[in-house]
Amino acid sequence: MEGEMPKVLLVDDEERFRVTTARLLGVRGFQVGTAGSGVEALEELERNPYDVVVLDVKMPGVSGIEALAEIKRRQPQVEVLILTGHASVDAAVEIMRLGGCEYLLKPCSMDELVEKIERALERKAMKEGSEEKP
């Protein structure tokens, strides 16, 4: 496994944010895929394996949260990191209920984002380690 670049799927409907963030994540040593919507994200996850999904959840709207629930259902091994411009308690509560993902408020610096992604990778590795034991 070592030496392989961790795979991150970036889901955001703001194209420019997606493109530039993907470039910067690339510079930091991640292999990055992007998707412009929840549906696109689910399709991309079917096609290619990912370690971490960075998902923008809009206003307490359903689409992002629904996508999150669906990702968790289909691919429980993938770590999801929520990125949002909206600090709504209701949304946060809903997100916690759906599987205790990490939560990051927009705007955030690349340092903050990378730190969260790395922690998500650690969590994933830990989970896999404990599952492999008989």
Partner: peptide
Amino acid sequence: NNPLAIIGR
């Protein structure tokens, strides 16, 4: 927050 995120990035 959304345009701000883009500006920052």
